[in-house]
Amino acid sequence: MSMLQVDNINVYYGAIHAVKDISFYVDEGEIVTLIGANGAGKSTTLQTISGLLRSRTGSIEFLGKAIQNVPAAKLVAHGLAQVPEGRRVFQQMTVEENLEMGAFTQPNTTIAPNLERVYEQFPRLKERRRQVAGTLSGGEQQMLAMGRALMSGPKLLMLDEPSMGLAPILVEQIFEIIQRLHKAGTTILLVEQNAQMALSVADRGYVLETGRITLTGPGKALLADEAVKKAYLGG
């Protein structure tokens, strides 16, 4: 059984049909990526899984439980964490307070060891623990958003455009971190516009086009696919 099983979801913004009958799955231990152009429905799909948006049809199962009607705030406790698009760190709170918020659903005794673990992954965050998050650079904020999501000890980490707005060198760094987290045992669902990077780290990928999945396959195979190359890899 898959860790995450999404079946036939349809999501609307008012009259706009943003996600059309999408189905896919993520197995435990995988990195799966959804790629596609801006507006293809990638973020909408992710937000529907995390409960911020609702699908009109279909089902979403996580670890064997139907979660399509579970409120977003309850999902963290199920082992699902999302790093939202645009990072969305709490700008006026300190780095450490942001991380504490990530562990909001966790018992108080696990906060300290989780903090240590996150600081180990992101030494930069430890240096800046007392600093207000709004003063961090874009790359640091991305690290903070990822660290914050990890504070709940998620089984599945969903990342929404982690490379957005970052300099190429930072993009490399963020992807190294993603691979490191994956090696440490976290299953990852990655939404990216940067198809090159995403497909090169992913076990499997799905290509979204105007709300539909048009292509799927192993990451490497999609990287080599002529249609994908033409549409998303600049040649």
Binding site: L52, L75, V76, R88, V89, F90, M93, M101, G102, F104
Partner: peptide, 23 residues
């Protein structure tokens, strides 16, 4: 914890929900 959650909510409700905070 509750007070900090309050500040988190006042900054960004969607992000607060993703943390598991009941807005």
């Amino acid at each position: 914890k509750m007070g900090k959650a309050m500040r988190a909510c006042s900054e960004d409700k969607a992000a607060a929900q993703l943390m598991g905070i009941d807005v």
